[in-house]
Amino acid sequence: MLSFILRRLSVQIPTFLGLTLLTFTLIRLIPGDPIEVMVGERTLDPQMHAEAMHRLGLDKPLYQQYFDYLSNLLHGDLGLSLVTKESVWSEFTTLFPATLELAIAAMLFASVFGLLAGVIAAIRRGSVFDHGVMGISLTGFSMPIFWWGLILIMFFSVQLGWTPVSGRLDLAYDVQPVTGFMLIDTWLAEAADPELNAGAFRDALMHLILPAVVLGTIPLAVIARMTRSSMLEVLREDYVRTARAKGLSPARVIFIHTLRNALIPVLTVMGLQIGTLMGGAVLTETIFSWPGIGKWLIDAIARRDYPVVQNGILIVATLVIVTNFVVDILYGIANPRIRHAK
């Protein structure tokens, strides 16, 4: 098992190298540099500009900047933000729980409804429900996130007034960031001071719903379609017929004998969705002013904050790779044929 994990990890080394090169180059390809962006419209003395660039080490040749960057990485140094002078890592850890909370909520939404819709569509193959689910999921899958988010805000927040437009919590509440997860923090705050923070948890929940739905839409569509086709495939298997021939109830045949096996490809797809989720988080957080990693990266790109962009993306990419890795291991639990393979 250990050698399996190490082997899988070593495969990722070129991926990381390629990633650093890509982010390093791409951010520098965007016109303008950090100093110009900071100064903005005002005219800038070339002398001062050169000095500032020298101070940041940005006047060195590109290859040298890249090797400095790599050597810092190897020393575990993710650098400081050019704008806030905070360490990239500490900024990341402060903001990450917000993104994680959003991603978990989105994935929960997508998994529960995706699996349910996929299973029912497969059992009632060819029915109105089946065609409906497949049609809607195709639409959902092709929906541009920023547009879908704005439509939902217009309808539910502006017209109906059911949910707040943006942010994580109403300003009226005084909630200490204990875990960084707003749902947990508000719950703690409400328990600590029921009078001042009455309704804080509900408010945080209402803030979370729309962004989670928007972010979860594409994974929902993918999971529903994958579950359906995987279920249909497994339903044709001989062992499902055996299960029926045993006289087992339809529910047991579906959930114990069919879904368990149908889940294996669905798990892969869920793992792959983590990447989509991170990409989607950038857009979703921007639309809903959600103070998470996505918004942080967008802001950093706008400010040409090179270390934040390079290392922020690197951390996110590492997370995606690690989650996919965990999914690989989860496979073994879902599928004994893999677990026992040498």
Binding site: E237, D238, Y239, A245, H257, R260, N261, N335, R337
Partner: peptide, 16 residues
């Protein structure tokens, strides 16, 4: 009434 099927390799559920 019980039944035995043709292909034993696919008649058993691989996950259990």
């Amino acid at each position: 009434i019980a039944m035995i099927f043709q292909d034993p390799m696919t008649s058993l559920n691989p996950s259990y």
